[in-house]
Computed example of a mutant assay.
Amino acid sequence: MPVALVTGANKGIGYSTAAGLARRGFTVWLGARNQTRGEAAAASLRALGLDARFIELDVTNEESIDRAVEVIGTNTSALDTLVNNAGISTEGANFEFTPPSQLGLSRIRDAFEVNLFGAIAVTQKFLPLLRRSAAPRIVNVSSELGSMILNTSDGNSLGHIEPLAYKTSKAALNMATVMFARELRADGFKVNAATPGLVASDLSGKGNADVLRGRPGFKTPDDGARIIVDLATLPSHGPTGGFFRDGLQTVPW
Rank of each mutant, 00 (worst) to 15 (best):
P136H: 07
V71D: 02
A41F: 03
P128R: 01
G247H: 06
N140L: 04
L21A: 03
E144H: 09
R215E: 14
G238V: 00
S236A: 13
G197E: 07
L82M: 06
R23N: 07
V141Q: 03
T81F: 01
N208W: 10
L145S: 15
R215T: 13
K11D: 06
S204L: 09
I88C: 05
L150H: 06
V28H: 05
S64H: 11
N85W: 00
T233Y: 05
N94P: 00
I149V: 15
L105I: 02
M148P: 04
S201N: 12
L150G: 08
D223S: 12
K206L: 11
N94H: 02
V28I: 09
G14I: 03
N192Y: 05
I149S: 15
D66F: 11
T7Q: 02
A209I: 06
P221D: 01
I72L: 06
F95S: 12
D223V: 13
I161T: 15
D80A: 01
A86L: 06
T250Y: 03
P235S: 04
G224F: 02
F54Y: 14
A193C: 09
A43Q: 15
T27G: 05
F54C: 04
F244Q: 08
G49F: 04
V114A: 07
L248N: 09
N174S: 10
R37S: 13
K219R: 15
T90C: 06
G214Q: 05
D202Q: 13
L198Q: 08
A172I: 12
V211Y: 05
A4C: 03
G238C: 01
E113V: 10
G205R: 01
T7G: 01
F95Q: 03
F189R: 07
E39C: 08
S157I: 15
S106K: 06
V199E: 09
P128L: 02
N75P: 00
R215A: 13
G8K: 10
E39A: 10
S204Y: 09
A135P: 07
G118E: 05
A172Q: 12
R132T: 10
G214E: 01
F180H: 13
Q102M: 12
A186R: 11
I161Q: 14
N85E: 11
V139C: 07
M148H: 04
G197V: 05
F95A: 11
M1L: 04
E162N: 15
V139D: 01
P196C: 07
F243Q: 04
S16L: 04
T250C: 06
A134H: 14
D51Q: 09
R215F: 12
G25D: 05
S201F: 10
G238A: 01
A134P: 14
I138G: 00
N10G: 00
G214C: 04
L127C: 12
A42Y: 04
Q124Y: 10
F112Y: 15
R215Q: 15
I120K: 02
I227V: 15
G146I: 00
F218H: 10
T240V: 05
R53E: 07
V59L: 04
T195G: 11
A42K: 02
W253N: 05
R185K: 14
F117D: 07
A78P: 02
R33P: 06
A41H: 01
N84E: 01
N34S: 07
R46G: 14
P136V: 05
G205V: 02
V71G: 00
I55F: 03
R182V: 10
R53C: 12
Q249P: 01
A193I: 03
L212Y: 10
N10S: 00
I13N: 08
N174R: 11
E144N: 13
R226N: 11
I120G: 00
A22F: 12
D80E: 02
D202G: 14
